[in-house]
Simulated assay, not measured.
Amino acid sequence: MKKAIIIFFLFMAVGAVAYTLYNNKTEMNEAANLAMKSSEFISITTEKVAKKTVNRNFEANGVFEAHQELKLMSETSGSIVKILKKKGSYVKRGDLIVQIDDRLIRADYEIAKLNRDQAEKDLQRYANLAATDAITKKQYEENEKAFKIADAQFSALKKRLADTQITAPISGFINEDYYELGTLVSPGMPIADIINKNPLKLAVKVSESEIAKVKRGDMIPVEVNAINGQEFSGKVDFISDKADASFKYEVILEMTGKDADQIKAGMFGTAKFEFSQNEEVLQISRKSIVGSLKNPGVYLIEKGEAVYQPVTINTLDEGTVEVLEGLTEGQEVISSGLINIKEGTKVKVQ
């Protein structure tokens, strides 16, 4: 009797487990079916292609640069014995800045000059003798060779002597100097930094759509961040023919007017390009664009499915783009949920 009761409870336990497993399987199947039904489409939102008013004027920021800037180097060795210009001095091209001790080089130069002059006289005398066949051709050629050697030595020492006088290769201000009286210099050692900021230039970067409006010779208003309440002007002096990696083109403005002397190289400026009045263009949000700005596109909805549409755009401000080709006013494009969408994906507007 006791054994029969145990068997009965075992059958009851097995039945309970089987029933629970059956119910769990049913619930899992229902959940899977529900998931399959819910994955039949992706919830999205849309926006309409609409006409909006834009202003084609634009601004571009940049840094003012000197017209010329170089680091003057020594081409000889020796100690500085005379200083004529220091930091902050204005120099004209060819002005003497420092004099390096030239006593030894000058002595060698004078000897070389005497040797060269003597060799020239000897060559002339031998040329006269050769004309009367008083000497052989070989004797004349040896004297000609001696003159060329003496002349080359003289030219080399003349250059070395000139190198002891370090002069300004351009006109401008000495922005930094690296010498004192008695400083021992050597070839390649920096002597001074010279800056010629006349005329000063402002380099800015503009986009593909903006560059088409800029022309060489255009006069552009310019604001200097460090000089409040005053407006300057610059003339477009250079426009690059090729865009950089960010699809921007370089434009260089040459600053004009007497007040431009207030601007220092390294200051920040803003060029204000003003060309046209307000106009209406087709616009959509930047977030509705898929792909890169080089190969952009959007997704339309046809019969409940996403359809890819390539477009031509122009980037505007405030996160919007102008649609140049590919869409018409009133069309709806998918604006959210794009991460899971591809051609033919079933979608449902929320």
Results as ranks from 00 to 15, higher is better:
23 N>D: 12
135 I>L: 10
129 L>Y: 15
156 A>W: 00
307 V>H: 02
329 E>D: 00
127 A>I: 04
124 Q>L: 07
280 E>P: 05
93 R>F: 01
294 K>W: 00
130 A>D: 09
93 R>S: 14
331 Q>K: 05
107 A>G: 10
339 I>F: 13
206 V>L: 12
278 N>Y: 02
178 Y>K: 06
27 E>Q: 11
90 Y>N: 11
256 T>F: 12
31 A>I: 15
183 T>E: 00
104 L>Y: 14
165 Q>S: 15
98 V>T: 10
192 A>S: 13
132 T>V: 12
32 A>I: 14
342 K>A: 10
12 M>V: 15
1 M>Q: 12
185 V>W: 07
344 G>Y: 05
199 P>K: 05
56 R>K: 11
330 G>D: 01
162 A>F: 12
197 K>H: 05
87 K>Q: 10
17 V>Q: 03
214 V>A: 12
301 I>Y: 00
146 A>M: 08
182 G>H: 10
28 M>N: 15
191 I>G: 02
151 D>N: 12
204 V>Y: 13
299 Y>M: 10
257 G>C: 06
45 T>Y: 01
14 V>I: 11
84 L>V: 13
10 L>V: 15
288 S>G: 08
99 Q>T: 14
334 I>C: 04
280 E>A: 04
258 K>H: 03
278 N>F: 01
57 N>K: 04
11 F>D: 02
254 E>A: 15
250 E>P: 00
151 D>C: 05
305 E>A: 06
67 H>K: 06
164 T>F: 09
237 D>M: 14
69 E>V: 05
74 S>I: 08
250 E>W: 00
90 Y>H: 09
191 I>V: 12
350 Q>H: 08
175 N>V: 07
66 A>T: 00
4 A>L: 14
333 V>R: 07
288 S>P: 06
290 V>I: 12
18 A>W: 10
29 N>G: 11
76 T>N: 03
156 A>T: 03
350 Q>A: 11
166 I>L: 13
71 K>G: 13
11 F>V: 13
180 E>K: 13
284 I>H: 01
350 Q>G: 08
254 E>F: 11
106 R>E: 14
276 S>K: 09
174 I>E: 05
272 K>E: 05
74 S>K: 09
320 T>D: 04
163 D>K: 12
32 A>P: 06
208 E>T: 10
167 T>F: 08
181 L>R: 04
80 I>C: 05
137 K>W: 09
7 I>A: 15
328 T>K: 15
311 V>K: 10
64 F>T: 09
